[in-house]
Design a protein around this nucleic acid. Sequence first.
DNA 1: ATAGGAACTGTAATCGATTACATGGAGGTG
DNA 2: CACCTCCATGTAATCGATTACAGTTCCTAT
Lengths: 331, 331
Amino acid sequence: MPTIKEVAKAAQVSVATVSRVLNQDKNVSPQTRQKVLEVVRQVGYTPNMLGRNLRRKNTERILVLIPSLSNQFLSGVIRGVESAAKQKELQVMISAAHNDREAEQGYLEMLYNRSVDGIILVGSTLDQEELSQLAGQYPLVMCSEWVEGANVSAVGIDNEQAAFDAVNALLASGRKKIAMVSNEEVYSARLRTQGYRRALEQAGLPHKREYEVEHYEYTYRAGMRACRMLMALPEPPDAIFAVSDELAAGVCKALIEQGIIPGREVDVFGFDNTTMSKVVTPSISTVSQPRKRIGGTALELLWERMEHPEEKPRLVLLPHELVLRDSSQHR
Amino acid sequence: MPTIKEVAKAAQVSVATVSRVLNQDKNVSPQTRQKVLEVVRQVGYTPNMLGRNLRRKNTERILVLIPSLSNQFLSGVIRGVESAAKQKELQVMISAAHNDREAEQGYLEMLYNRSVDGIILVGSTLDQEELSQLAGQYPLVMCSEWVEGANVSAVGIDNEQAAFDAVNALLASGRKKIAMVSNEEVYSARLRTQGYRRALEQAGLPHKREYEVEHYEYTYRAGMRACRMLMALPEPPDAIFAVSDELAAGVCKALIEQGIIPGREVDVFGFDNTTMSKVVTPSISTVSQPRKRIGGTALELLWERMEHPEEKPRLVLLPHELVLRDSSQHR
DNA sequence: ATAGGAACTGTAATCGATTACATGGAGGTG
DNA sequence: CACCTCCATGTAATCGATTACAGTTCCTAT
């Protein structure tokens, strides 16, 4: 791998001139430019980014740090990030923190040690204090999942309202005994539980404690377990709202195992509009988030932080939509 | 963000000494070490990786380049890469190339320009020539999906044999009209088609051209389309083998739409043992690959290339397993 | 007592680029 | 012709670390 020095020698110019050619500096005569480019092509020179980055003090690279890779919804968000990043000529890298605090901190350190120019963080194991402090010093924004009270730019949907809407859809088709499968560890899920409660309250329905089932994983197994618990109650629910499609798919599977067809005796509602909600039979009603727009906005917010670090962080809420399918009655 | 120079001044030592302390060089007296560490903690110093990387000529960072993020199977593979990388103290970054040649080349350039120390490539749009050349110069290995004839280390399963086994399982339960949904653009799928044909041949069955359906996507929609085509044939198949679970799920969905229950009149077999194959009803028989082991081995192969670039690339095939579920008859 | 070596520390070169500043020549103007 | 400007190019400083080499001190063995 040749260096700029070797190129300079071969082209019989100084390294400065080579650098100018490569960085489109106008102060180069057409002939020298030609000659340099010729040599560059001939020896197959590519600038060493380690040198460039050190001098420029940046990398033109950002990191998207997500909790887990096997998340269809997030892959849509990342598509949004990628296409917005392309506009700004930023390279996008992804890493998974797996809800491991140490791993997360290891990746966040890339801000300190300048390995990346900024980070888009999806969820976090850090607290509001730590996040606010970090975001105050470095370009850091949150996306889809954020932390209550943290002074960090963020983008997502209005989770409380979305859950409220979903539950109202169930109420509208006559359901009265609506259960919820949630996860109090995640802020977005807590908000959804609040929306669920508000909808019940507004409809004048009591909200029974035993209708709120907790699970710390968004897996279909957890959904199955939750469903079995709910259906074993003295007064089983006639609708189940889960905070993710995979949970909802598990709920449906457990119902089917018991001979109950989702959408008939019991309605099921999911969240995120993933492929799974479309593929399973019956298909699952769900809340759709504008994934690509969320990702694109996250990048814009990050850019804002990079260009104007002094400005205040802001929260952007984008509109959600209900997608009604066979797992819930409707007309 | 303080630099090593400022730390040195504050600790009243030279930058060399600070560097020695930070890099566990034994030639430092306990007192100075103490003092330096004190200052480091106090000012919150973190070494700037851009400087370190330039000097050391490496980044201790590798890239896993995959075609798409929304792939449950690959996320397991990456878990395997991550845990093996942890042992070697390498940081793992992931990027998606989306089958876009330009995007792929942009990421591969990170080898040339030293942004990463090595790349694990899952599939590629490059040809054997280009890949061989690249892998000859830089640490590059392929994983799960590789390219015929490329002189590159790779790890995966024996796709031909796996398909052979899957089709034999269908034959064993009495199926005779077995169709296949494949993708001739992908080498692993071509191998699977070969295994399918070999199984039919060995069973003395003709392989009908119209039973081999092509699709260039691994989506459930493509699976549905393929299934509708197959079932519209004058002599529809009594079993359908798809090269991915998502395709298989689409096949099942289309069957159900026609009132046919997978596993009764028509068997369905998928590939990869993803969550989806378990969640859908009926659950789908599939081929399971040792994902984490594949990922771990990919990292070991990459490490081999990094440490001993002169040694010949090698191909590692790991064992697969059939997972029989409700979508296929069996006893 | 002195040579030799070990232990500790500092000076300065180095990695590969970018870029501020200096320089020299061409061309224009009064 | 003298002077100024502008363009093209080169020289050298710089980014922030690591590390080869050199120097100093002090201990030990003869």
